Amino acid sequence: MLEEAGLKSLTESVTANGKIYPFKEVKLSLELPGEVTRIAISEGDSVSKGDLLLEIEADNYISSVSQSNAAYKQALANLASAKARKSQADAQFKIIESDYNRRKELFQKQIISTVELEASESQYFAAFGEKEAAFQAVEASNYQAQSANAGLQQTRDNLSRTKLFAPMSGIISKLNVEQGEKVVGTAQMAGTELVTISDFAEMELRIEVGENEVLQVTEGDTALIEVDAYLGEEILGIVSQVAYSSNALLDQQVTKFEVEIKLVKASYEKLISDERKLPFRPGMSATAEIITNKKENILCGPIQSVTLRDPNEEDDFDEKIQVVFVFKDGKVLQKEVKTGIQDDTNIEILSGVNEGDQLVSAPFKAISKELENEMEVVAISEEELYGE
């Protein structure tokens, strides 16, 4: 069977399946463990930033705040007492220092004895030591007060963490907890995922592309999307992110990379109505065809006409080249070709054949193994080949 090489437009694409999710969503957990005592929202509710979502049992944390507050007040009282002692020590030292200086003058005038001077000197150094001790006591009490204050702030922070607030406006797309359930906090391990808030204003499709195709995909590529729930409706998308690391697990044979495609809202506004303000739900299945390259008026041939042959006829894969068989005057001529982009049926031919050449396109077994250069053949139609 023959087909003519001719000028066509080719669109190269990558097709993959995936799931639709909000472009922006946050998964929330509490930092502290505890029993859920109140849930203020339901799945599907709209929330604003700062709204209370849920809270856990806070009695222990309230008790901790009371204890820390009492400890802080005690530390402040100790600090005040230390300061009062320091004031007394400072005043006493000034009196003794003045008396000591006076007695030194009297001693120099030989009015008092050495014994009296030494007694005064002993009182002076004792008062000086008391003054320094009082100063150190104030410093220690001050540090204790600061530590107690920090402890109080920490217990207050822990008490505030018993309540979960919305960090953004959106819709509660998932609620994974019931009242009375005990949850694990994130302070020491992976916490319980409690609530997911999603912003449905923008949606994206997340697909996985094989390692042989991911290099063809770049950010900004256009994608044509069909959602399983809206068969026949074509939605436009733009590739927003291509993963640099694969999602392959140890037991997977195929390595795949996640590609995120942002849906263009104008292309699916027709799906929005008063009864259906949110046409998509997280996890809906969809198929994307990413347009990776497009060329107009290029020389093409049937993709099945191109095969690999070893010019030395030794069937060495490393030595194989791309060839086609051109039918002319009852014979086929083997032509080496260089190819470019391709779609499902045609492939770009960069060199080796001319427009209008008759290329052998079937049967595949003949093209890949049986045909030889300058072999005489008889051209037959598709109906004759397949007996239709």
Rank of each mutant, 00 (worst) to 15 (best):
L32W: 03
K320P: 00
K73D: 09
A366Q: 14
A70Y: 02
L10I: 15
I20M: 06
D199K: 11
Q179C: 00
G301D: 01
L30Q: 13
E204M: 11
K24A: 13
Q342M: 06
S141F: 06
D316S: 11
S141P: 04
Q216H: 06
K369N: 12
G50M: 02
Q108G: 05
K365F: 06
T15C: 05
T155P: 00
S64M: 07
E296A: 10
D90K: 12
G283N: 03
L28E: 14
E233I: 07
F135T: 14
V259Y: 07
F165D: 01
G191L: 10
K369R: 13
D251A: 12
Q188M: 08
A166G: 13
F107M: 09
A134Q: 11
G340K: 04
N212C: 00
L152Q: 06
N101Q: 13
L231S: 15
S64A: 15
Q179L: 02
I298G: 03
E118I: 00
R38G: 07
T192Y: 10
R156Q: 09
I172D: 09
I171R: 15
G340Y: 05
A58P: 00
L271G: 12
Q241P: 00
E208M: 05
Y230M: 03
Q67I: 15
M189E: 12
K174G: 13
K277G: 13
I303D: 08
E296D: 09
E296W: 02
Q253V: 13
E208Q: 10
R156I: 05
R85E: 09
S381H: 04
T307M: 03
A71N: 15
V65D: 02
E355W: 01
D51C: 04
K338H: 10
G330Q: 10
V337F: 03
A366I: 03
F135C: 01
L106C: 11
V177R: 06
E388S: 10
L231G: 14
E116C: 00
F165E: 04
I62K: 14
P22R: 08
K331R: 12
E289F: 02
E25M: 05
A166F: 11
Q146V: 04
L117F: 10
A266H: 06
A119E: 08
E260H: 07
L152P: 01
I290G: 09
M189V: 13
K262H: 07
A89E: 02
I298V: 14
E132K: 14
L278E: 13
E258T: 15
D310L: 00
I95G: 07
K295A: 06
M1C: 06
A379K: 14
P302T: 03
D51H: 08
L117T: 11
I171T: 15
S160M: 10
